[in-house]
Amino acid sequence: MSDDRKADETVSATAGGADLHAGERLGFKPGMVVQELGWDDDVDDAVRVSIEDIIDADLVDGEYGNVVDAVVFWWRDGDGDLVDALVDSLTDLEAGGVVWLFTPKVGRDHEVDAADITEAAPVAGLSTTTTLPIGEDWAATKLVAPKNR
């Protein structure tokens, strides 16, 4: 594929809201097992498909019952207690795995204040590292367990 065509696809992938390279930008790799929590009608299906394309498998749900490499967690203001939810998201996560917390962007319905994430993460035993836009309406915050966990 030409460099011009790649650039055009990247621009169109993000300009229209569909993030066709989300799975790659989040660091997912083929063969990873990724658990999805908090799914609802409002999730960004293009982001989900991108992740599934990269890992070459379907996302698993909360009933999976085995170890997972990463967790994708869709979270909205009003979903409950974020600390409890984050602690629960660690149940199947392997050591060294990451939680990607997807929250509505600022100005969208049910947006989550960044301070809420910053306060909840350490109580749940996690550290925030990166936040980036993912899709048209969502932001992704990478949460990791401290190395000495």
Rank of each mutant, 00 (worst) to 15 (best):
S2D: 00
S2W: 00
S2Q: 00
D3G: 00
R5Q: 10
R5C: 00
K6V: 11
K6A: 11
K6L: 13
A7W: 00
D8P: 00
T10M: 06
T10W: 07
T10R: 09
V11R: 12
S12Y: 05
S12G: 02
T14Y: 02
T14F: 03
A15I: 02
A15F: 04
D19R: 03
D19I: 01
H21V: 08
A22N: 03
E24G: 05
F28P: 04
F28T: 12
K29L: 10
K29Y: 02
G31D: 09
G31S: 07
V33K: 15
V33G: 09
V34S: 05
V34W: 03
Q35V: 02
L37I: 11
L37Q: 11
L37F: 13
D40S: 12
D40A: 07
D41M: 04
D41W: 07
V43E: 07
D44N: 11
D45L: 13
D45P: 01
V47Y: 08
V47T: 13
V47I: 15
V47F: 13
R48T: 13
V49N: 08
S50A: 07
S50M: 08
I51P: 10
I51L: 14
I51F: 06
E52L: 07
E52W: 12
D53S: 09
D53N: 14
I54E: 14
I55V: 13
I55H: 05
I55T: 11
I55F: 03
I55K: 09
A57Q: 08
D58Y: 06
L59C: 05
V60Q: 06
V60M: 07
E63P: 00
E63N: 05
E63H: 04
E63I: 03
Y64K: 07
G65F: 11
V67F: 09
V67P: 00
D69I: 04
D69Q: 05
V71N: 14
V72P: 01
V72H: 03
F73K: 03
W74E: 02
D77M: 04
D79E: 09
G80T: 11
D81P: 08
D81A: 15
L86M: 14
D88S: 15
D88L: 13
D88W: 05
D88T: 06
S89N: 09
S89K: 07
L90G: 10
D92Y: 15
L93D: 11
E94H: 12
A95S: 14
A95M: 10
G96S: 10
G96M: 10
G96A: 10
G97V: 04
V98N: 12
V99M: 06
V99E: 01
V99T: 15
L101H: 06
F102C: 14
F102E: 02
T103L: 05
V106C: 01
D109C: 01
D109Q: 03
H110F: 09
E111K: 06
V112R: 04
V112H: 02
D113K: 04
D113N: 12
A114S: 09
D116M: 08
D116T: 15
D116E: 13
E119Q: 11
E119M: 12
E119D: 14
A120H: 12
A121T: 13
A121W: 03
V123I: 15
A124Y: 10
L126P: 07
L126H: 08
T128W: 01
T128Q: 10
T130L: 09
T131R: 14
T131E: 06
P133N: 09
G135Y: 03
E136M: 01
A139N: 10
A139T: 03
A139L: 08
A140V: 04
A140N: 00
K142I: 02
N148E: 15
R149V: 10
R149G: 04
R149M: 14
